[in-house]
Simulated assay, not measured.
Amino acid sequence: MTDQAGPRPINPMLKSALEFGPLLAFFAAYLALKDRIFTIGGTEYEGFIVVTAGFIPVFLIATGLLWKLTRHLSRMQLVTAVLIVIFGGLSVWLNDDRFFKMKPTLIYLLFGTALGIGLLRGESWLRAVMEGLMPLKQEGWMILTRRVMLMFFGLAVLNEVIWRTMSTETWVYFKTFGLTAAVFAFFMTQSSLFKTYAIEDEAEADKPAE
């Protein structure tokens, strides 16, 4: 879902609000409703399930607005949206929070596997997603892709450990802040790689990889 002319520029604050707003709204709603039980159609639902049911349309609306404004959604955003609908829907339909808690695991496994397949083909599929943000030499992209792949697998394992061994509230905090902080911290630790393999010459940046 990409406009032929490329993504349309929008206000960075608005873009961040559309990307992270639904997650923060989920967190706030969970804190407000976590101890409540709702009876709907004769079935009792915990606050977490009700908040999950509300999160799905909010997320889809925000994603739709992001596409309308930019005419662009990355493959990662599309996959995330599909999995949120599937696993969030299963949690609500079956009244079982485990499906929604498993969603990050599936997302990170899919992304990690996709990057691994690209590496086996001698390609950096991460480059297609992030090249506009950080121009690197091909060797740098391959190293970064391997590291990001391992990060995704590590986060998948970590999510499984958290939701299976700790409380729902702990998982919500982890999902809202822990995963984002972990990704941010990871890229902060890659500063030496960015310096070593950065492309400073514009002509070199446009040169296709051999």
Rank of each mutant, 00 (worst) to 15 (best):
A5Q: 14
A5E: 13
A5H: 10
A5V: 08
A5R: 15
A5P: 00
G6F: 10
G6K: 09
G6L: 04
G6Y: 04
G6S: 04
P7Y: 04
P7G: 15
P7H: 03
P7L: 06
R8W: 07
R8Q: 15
R8F: 14
R8A: 13
R8Y: 14
R8K: 15
P9R: 12
P9E: 11
P9W: 09
P9Y: 07
P9H: 12
P9T: 14
N11R: 10
N11Y: 07
N11K: 07
N11W: 05
N11S: 14
N11F: 10
N11L: 10
N11A: 11
P12Q: 05
P12W: 05
P12S: 08
P12Y: 07
M13W: 15
M13G: 11
L14N: 02
L14C: 02
L14K: 09
L14M: 13
L14Q: 06
L14G: 03
L14F: 04
K15M: 11
K15S: 14
S16I: 06
S16N: 11
S16P: 04
A17F: 15
A17R: 01
A17Q: 02
A17H: 02
L18C: 09
L18H: 04
L18P: 06
L18Y: 06
E19I: 07
E19A: 14
E19Q: 13
F20N: 00
F20E: 00
F20K: 00
F20C: 01
G21V: 09
G21S: 13
G21N: 13
G21P: 08
G21W: 04
G21F: 02
G21Y: 07
P22H: 01
P22N: 04
P22C: 02
L23Y: 07
L23G: 10
L23D: 05
L23P: 01
L23T: 09
L24P: 01
L24K: 01
L24V: 02
L24G: 01
A25L: 07
A25G: 01
A25M: 00
A25T: 01
F26V: 01
F26Y: 08
F26Q: 00
F27Y: 14
F27A: 03
F27Q: 01
A28L: 13
A28Q: 05
A28E: 02
A29G: 10
A29P: 04
A29T: 11
A29S: 13
A29K: 04
A29W: 11
A29D: 05
Y30N: 03
Y30L: 03
Y30P: 03
Y30H: 08
L31Y: 05
L31H: 12
L31F: 08
A32V: 12
A32F: 11
A32G: 06
A32D: 09
A32H: 12
A32S: 14
A32C: 12
L33S: 09
L33H: 08
L33T: 11
L33M: 14
L33A: 13
L33V: 12
L33P: 02
K34Y: 02
K34R: 15
K34S: 10
K34T: 08
K34P: 04
K34E: 12
K34H: 14
